[in-house]
Nucleic acid binder design. Structure first.
Lengths: 188, 188
DNA sequence: GCTCCTAGCTTGAGGTTTCAACCATATCCC
DNA sequence: GGGATATGGTTGAAACCTCAAGCTAGGAGC
């Protein structure tokens, strides 16, 4: 089968995207690393936890949420635990699963880091785009994401059972109400 | 100064982009790694060399072309040299600069890797987008890239002198002699 | 020539990610 | 009950990237 090469426009688009997104991500990484000593991936983990009911998720849920491998999460959370930002605990009934919860320090970290990070995202991305382009960006990558998730679907099996209210004893944390708008960039 | 948070739409766009692009890049990386034992970044290096006149570039030119740090390039090319895909050689007159050139094996590698890679880019990206979206994608990231290159300009002082016409960064349109299309995804 | 400074690149250490292997607990099914 | 299998996580090694430091060669100024 003969390869369908990219035409000239596609090439240009592809390369702009590849380098643009790479540099953008690197810039964000550097900002967080410099200002908070935190890689972007780690910030996302803290952020994801900060949004979870009870600021707690199982490792699997966390992995799904930040779209990372189990291994990556395990290493990362180990590191975050050393840093005192996260604490791990065995699940009561199912002793295989471990729960990761944000410590007070962890919460403070997210709260401290969020404004600078959001500013960076604004400066480097949204402030440079028209609102329509922002929309388009979202549309395009929701499509891409859809395709990729399909590919993964056989691999991941998203637990139908919802690990009920996690730990059951969630102290006042059950603000399950936070629906649709799960923003990862603003701590709660 | 009070932080300008992202509104709901921006959040959604931002997260779709962040995860979509991340997963996309990881998917491409895996494809190349699996089929050719080559990380995407390394493929880009080989690809850049394959387009250069004489299949040769100085380390600095290479760094500009693939938008990577000198250090990264140095490590990477060292690795590629071990693998026999690239050869390094001191410059005759200016003994500081070293030139990296693709070996025959290196050429063969790019030729072998290109079709699968391009297929992947098509399958995962362009085939899922309308032509207009493809255009938009390019536009958006040319803009982003413009901003980032400006930021970098003071930091990296990529010597103003334009190191000979070598296939540098033309996203901005500076298409030079070698037949227009400047694709990084098709070996020559 | 000598000194100081810059350019070009390399090196080493430290941190993150990946891959494959592994452990422990649950679950299925006879 | 008990073995096979699946699930949830962890671990260690190897690979890659980043950062800071260093090293050599070219240039500028005197």
């Amino acid at each position: 089968m003969t390869t369908r090469w990219l035409d000239e426009d596609e090439q240009r688009s592809w390369r702009a995207f590849m380098w643009g997104s790479r540099l953008l991500m690197e810039a964000l990484d550097r900002q967080l690393q410099r200002d908070e000593g935190l890689p972007h991936a780690y910030y996302m983990i803290l952020s994801a936890l900060s949004e979870a009911p009870g600021r707690t998720l199982t490792m699997s849920e966390l992995a799904q949420t930040v779209r990372g491998s189990a291994s990556r999460l395990s290493h990362a959370v180990a590191r975050l635990e050393e840093a005192g930002l996260v604490r791990r605990e065995r699940h009561r009934s199912d002793k295989r699963t471990t729960m990761a919860m944000l410590t007070e320090e962890g919460v403070a970290k997210v709260v401290a880091a969020a404004p600078g990070h959001v500013e960076a995202v604004r400066n480097l991305l949204f402030d440079r785009l028209t609102p329509e382009q922002g929309e388009q960006l979202g549309l395009i990558f929701r499509t891409v994401l859809g395709g990729l998730d399909d590919l993964d679907a056989p691999a991941r099996r998203w637990s139908g059972e919802r690990v009920a209210a996690v730990g059951g004893d969630d102290l006042a944390g059950g603000e399950q109400g936070h629906e649709g708008t799960d923003d990862h960039d603003r701590p709660r």
